[in-house]
Nucleic acid binder design. Structure first.
Lengths: 244, 244
DNA sequence: GGGGCTAGTGTGAAATTTACACTAATAAGT
DNA sequence: ACTTATTAGTGTAAATTTCACACTAGCCCC
């Protein structure tokens, strides 16, 4: 923090925000990418991000940019980290603040703006080369997600309102990049009492239909208030179970 | 990220870095503050921070600024968060990136520069009003420290090379703001095999002298390499033990 | 050598984690 | 109608970890 008498420190520079939006679909953890419609890196895939305005708070900018690029709004965004290497942007000094969010893919329609030619949900494993240092930013956000998922029941943000325990398990497996034991996972999750059994079952599946659950937000808020800490432990499975 | 044709986005603005340096002394967790020698907030206490230069990476800037303000160098700095509210700085748009670090207080001499009138280690509980939004930044870094201390043996960064188990416990208690059970703490710490018993004892204390230990960095690096995860669990003590 | 002070030590109960394999329910095909 | 394919759903015992808890040991000082 320095004096304003010395305006040398104020040089022409820019801030951007870049958003890493995670979703979950078809058993895959996905990230929302846009095909850039502007130089630099025109035509390449990158994160939905853009410039912060002069008189705009960072958090506000993250929301605005996300909305402008993809049509998404009222989405919870959390700051993850800031990337400011001198050469990260080919044409000037641009420091970017990365935000991440979790959304239910099917509850939103993505409407790419002109800046973004196109937007798409790409499986996290299939992400190829990205513009700028966006691959690094994505990695940082994915790590944050891994951390978060162990200490808060964020998984529910990514699933539709009604879901099966197997879907929930697959989500956790995708995020943590491990296999989990079915029985232990169910025991653990159910013991938290954060799920409401809807007494409904799946329809139109060619096998025994699974029960549907929803997340008990009220209970969760209650528990949060009294300083409860959610924790998912079980480590990677060591062996594959023999099937009958 | 946008086009450079549109230079509107590059406005006169500034980045700063602010460093939250933690130390531990006399049983207290402390933070290094400077008495500001410049407007704004001249004469007030604040974090050691200053402007990032135009062609300087963020991480580099954090190190440089710390050195210039306090004389400290070769200190591990980790980025924590970025603060960018429009009005956080009274005279212009200044976005700051907060870094934090842990050092052994007695191993460094602080040499405040002219920008910093004075520098001092202030107990975390005695920190009064700070310049800018530095109180908020400090809080964020303290939370990060709490998080970190549970998953990595960072405590050793704050203690002198040789320390007693009681000192280590007091440090953990100061960071986690709880009391820990002596026997359980010792059991847990020793079971990690990250301490080397130096076969020496304290000198010049008016009571039974404690054994001295040092941190086994080699062992730790080994364990890290094989993907080991350190975890300190024990929750806050519920009762005070009756003393004989 | 007694008082004051902190170091250091062990055990059992409770809770949690882990490994592990079969039956149940449905749809589709014969 | 039955056989097959496919996923849902369930229980237990062993191992490990956590947790609560109280006394003896060793040094200094007087």
């Amino acid at each position: 923090m320095g004096t304003m008498e010395n305006l040398d420190h104020f040089f022409k520079s820019a801030f951007t925000v870049d958003n890493v939006i995670f979703g979950f679909d078809e058993g895959d953890l996905k990230v929302l990418l846009i095909k850039r419609g502007e130089e630099p890196y025109e035509g390449q895939w990158g994160l939905p991000g853009y410039f912060v305005n002069e008189n705009e708070d960072l958090d506000y900018a993250a929301n605005r940019v996300l909305k402008q690029l993809t049509g998404l709004q009222n989405v919870f965004l959390e700051q993850v980290a800031t990337f400011g290497d001198v050469n990260r942007h080919p044409t000037g000094r641009v420091i970017t603040v990365a935000y991440f969010s979790l959304i239910k893919i099917n509850q939103y329609t993505i409407q790419p703006s002109s800046i973004a030619n196109r937007a798409a949900w790409i499986s996290i494993d299939n992400v190829e080369e990205l513009a700028f240092d966006h691959a690094e930013i994505l990695r940082a956000c994915f790590n944050r997600l891994k951390l978060l998922v162990r200490t808060r029941p964020v998984g529910f943000e990514l699933l539709p309102r009604k879901f099966t325990l197997t879907e929930l398990q697959h989500l956790y497996e995708a995020i943590l990049e491990t296999d989990l034991d079915k029985r232990n996972f169910r025991k653990k999750i159910l013991s938290m009492n954060l799920l409401i059994d809807l007494d409904e079952t799946q329809e139109g599946v060619a096998h025994r239909p699974a029960r549907l659950y929803k997340f008990d937000k009220e209970k969760y808020d209650e528990l949060l208030a009294e300083g409860f800490s959610f924790e998912l432990k079980e480590s990677r499975r060591k062996m594959v179970e023999h099937m009958g």
